[in-house]
C-alpha cells in the first residue's frame, strides 16, 4: 500500500503543475482537449509497421513541455511507469512475426520487432500527451471543457467527484490495509476472505460517505444543477492552436513527412 500512497502523492504533484501560468496554461481548456484528442487518434491509427511516420508526432509533447515549463525528467518517470504494460502487449510480436521488413546494412529486422517498437512508441506518445494535458490544464478544467463540448453533465460531475474522492478513498484503503498488516502474523490473516470483507467494508464506508456528502450538498441548496463559475474564452489564439496542430497531425498521419525530409536531405547531398 505504501507504493499506492507514493503514486497518489505524485498524482497530486501533476495537479500542482496545472497551477502554472504560461501561455499554454492560459489557453482555453477546450482547445487543449481537442488537440490532444486529434493527436491520440492520429497516433493510434498509424499502421503497425509504421515507425518513421510516428517520429514527427514527438514534436507536440516536446513543444508543450518546453513552453509550459513542465519538468521533463518528472514526466519521463511517469511515462516509464506505463511502458512495461506496452512492452507486455507487444512482447510476442518478435517471436510470431519473423519476416524481415527492414534492412539495415546486412542485418534484416523482422516485422515483429518493428511492430513491437511501434506499440511502445505509440504508448509513449499517447501517455505523454495525456499527462501533459492534465499538467497544463488540471483535471477539473478538463471536466468542465468536456461538459462544454457536449458531454452530459452527470458524467462530468461523476468525474469531478471521482477525482476529489479518489484521494480520500485511497487513504482509507491504506489505513484499513495498515490495520490488517499490524495484526497479521505469519501467513495468517492474509487470506482472500479477509480481503473480501475489507473490500466490502470499504464499499459500505464509501456508501455512507456518499450519503453524508449528499447531505452537505442539500444543506447548501443543491437542486440537481451543477453551477460552475469557470469563464471560457475561445479566441484567435485557441483557434490558431487547434487548427495549426490538427493540420500538422493530419498531415503527418497522411503524408510520410519523415520520408520526404529524408529524400529532401539526400537530394541536397
Amino acid at each position: 500500500m505504501c507504493s499506492i500512497d507514493g503514486t497518489l502523492l505524485d498524482f497530486k504533484n501533476l495537479d500542482r503543475l496545472a497551477a502554472g501560468d504560461t501561455g499554454i496554461h492560459r489557453l482555453d481548456p477546450r482547445a487543449k482537449v481537442v488537440v490532444t484528442l486529434v493527436f491520440v487518434v492520429c497516433v493510434v491509427s498509424c499502421g503497425k509497421y509504421e515507425l518513421a511516420a510516428l517520429l514527427p508526432f514527438f514534436l507536440f509533447p516536446v513543444f508543450m513541455v518546453t513552453l509550459a515549463d513542465i519538468p521533463a525528467l518528472y514526466l519521463a518517470k511517469k511515462i516509464a511507469v506505463i511502458i512495461p504494460f506496452a512492452v507486455m502487449v507487444g512482447m510476442f510480436n518478435p517471436l510470431l512475426d519473423r519476416q524481415a521488413v527492414l534492412h539495415v546494412g546486412a542485418l534484416g529486422i523482422s516485422g515483429g520487432w518493428v511492430s513491437f517498437a511501434s506499440i511502445v512508441v505509440r504508448a509513449i506518445l499517447t501517455v505523454s500527451s495525456a499527462l501533459v494535458l492534465v499538467a497544463v490544464t488540471g483535471f477539473p478544467a478538463i471536466c468542465a471543457a468536456l461538459e462544454r463540448m457536449g458531454m452530459p453533465q452527470p458524467f462530468a460531475v461523476q468525474l469531478l467527484f471521482l477525482y476529489r474522492y479518489i484521494f480520500v478513498l485511497t487513504e482509507e484503503g491504506a489505513q484499513v490495509s495498515r490495520a490488517r498488516e499490524l495484526r497479521t502474523f505469519g501467513g495468517r490473516g492474509r487470506g482472500i476472505r479477509v480481503y473480501g470483507s475489507m473490500i466490502g467494508h470499504l464499499l459500505l464506508r464509501t456508501w455512507m460517505r456518499a450519503e453524508r456528502i449528499h447531505m452537505a450538498m442539500l444543506a447548501r441548496g443543491f437542486s440537481g444543477a451543477f453551477h460552475t463559475r469557470r469563464q471560457f474564452c475561445f479566441g484567435t489564439r485557441e483557434t490558431a492552436f487547434v487548427l495549426g496542430w490538427s493540420l500538422f497531425f493530419i498531415t503527418a498521419r497522411l503524408v510520410p513527412v519523415a520520408h520526404l525530409l529524408g529524400s529532401l536531405v539526400t537530394g541536397i547531398l
Binding site: 488540471g138 477539473p140 453524508r212 463559475r229
Partner: peptide
C-alpha cells in the same frame, strides 16, 4: 464530507 469541489473558492 463538506468540501467536495475542486478548489476552496469553488
Amino acid at each position: 464530507d463538506q468540501l467536495f469541489m475542486p478548489t476552496v473558492y469553488d
